[in-house]
Design a protein around this nucleic acid. Structure first.
Lengths: 221, 221
DNA sequence: CGAGATATATTCTGAATCGAGCATTCGAAC
DNA sequence: GTTCGAATGCTCGATTCAGAATATATCTCG
């Protein structure tokens, strides 16, 4: 059995669901939505069906039956195999034990931030700040609701985590915006200069950028 | 010109590099590595060449020349177009202004954590904690080095961000591990029960899991 | 001076992804 | 009674990705 690449966490979600009981793919997707797991695992129909096929091919799940109701398309109900149960535990163990390298979009944006001018950046960061505040509020109220309905904390850990991370980002964004705005951010004058000259002829000049960058091009070690 | 989907930030990296000066793809990849941008943008050769092709197809960059040195494969040098420059700024603006929905692997893992028993989880979280501590230390020393070499803060913002986030995760993981270990985590007894019975017959029983879950299956709103 | 490691530079291929589309059924409102 | 929209359930194809494969040049070290 060629070992599967553990790229798409949706496959883990499928294994976790089938652990509970056999289901057909559409039911999986609806269950994930009901339980709000589609907030923590990227879910879309196309991927779901190919992930299921791949799991079947690798013997981690198997068709339990195919049924049809009326004239609807035939549904295939799948169940987890022993190999699948083992794989789920192994994969989950690995995910908890070992931090994976992630590439958040905002980190990429920060990498290329000098392309924008400091004043624009402050404006944009303030807007981001507002979004993040709303996001925190939403997550918190979701958590309060869940507690109010008696859902044990173990079933909404992912939201606790998310709110922790979003709060941290919010702190970062706020501090950054403030320090650029009040001029305490180191090198902001140099950065502003570059863009002030740029704005006279439309946009940041490649040569000026290159010149400004030149001293820093060698790797920092 | 059909509008490109802004999925792969590597495309933004290409635009940012070509903003400075024309380059061929291999040079782009080497430059990204030198500047440690490969830590914030997923970089691999296969993707780079297809991203470049796609940018050409959409008129955001164009071939400036093709040259060959000795008997090496011909290199195609690309430059940015006006449309590309505009796109870079627009895209970057958008990334800074609007938080993107991300799906970190750890969040997925937390979603399915009940599959593991509380004692296993504590053990794994302690291991993760150690990794994260090492990661924080590495990032911090990198930042110290960069400052020591006179690199302005604007060029290593992405590391500042990363260390902020990793520290937040570390706090979360530490607190979670501790609260499960000392029993203060809400519902840990129920969770432990489920797995104690499970361990007598090898693994978590589907029916017992389903039964335990039953009261919580309806959506929390 | 020859062998192997490393750097240069791209291409290929199979797999994964994702959004859109298709086809049916059911319920509610008009 | 019929139309319209939501729900059910899956398929398809275009794009994108990752990583291996390819091919040559240059460096290094005994």
């Amino acid at each position: 059995m060629a070992s599967r690449s553990r790229t798409n966490p949706l496959a883990l979600a499928v294994l976790a669901l089938l652990w509970e009981r056999p289901m057909h793919p559409y039911e999986m997707s609806m269950t994930l939505r009901e339980r709000r797991k589609d907030e923590s695992v990227r879910l879309n129909f196309g991927s779901l069906y190919s992930v299921v096929d791949s799991l079947v091919k690798h013997g981690l799940i198997e068709a339990a039956s195919t049924e049809r109701e009326g004239n609807r398309p035939t549904r295939t109900v799948y169940r987890i195999t022993d190999a699948g149960a083992t794989e789920a535990i192994d994969w989950l163990t690995d995910l908890v034990r070992t931090p994976a390298k992630e590439f958040p979009q905002f980190e990429a944006a920060l990498s290329f931030l000098p392309l924008l001018g400091p004043d624009d950046v402050v404006r944009l960061l303030r807007l981001r700040q507002t979004s993040l505040e709303r996001q925190v509020a939403g997550l918190e109220s979701g958590l309060v609701d869940a507690r109010a309905m008696g859902l044990p904390a173990i079933f909404s850990l992912e939201s606790e985590y998310e709110v922790t991370i979003v709060r941290a980002e919010l702190g970062f964004v706020t501090a950054l915006a403030t320090s650029i705005a009040d001029g305490s951010f180191e090198g902001v004058d140099l950065w502003r200069d570059l863009h002030r000259r740029a704005s006279t002829h439309g946009r940041l000049d490649p040569d000026e950028l290159a010149e400004a960058l030149a001293p820093y091009l060698s790797p920092p070690q």
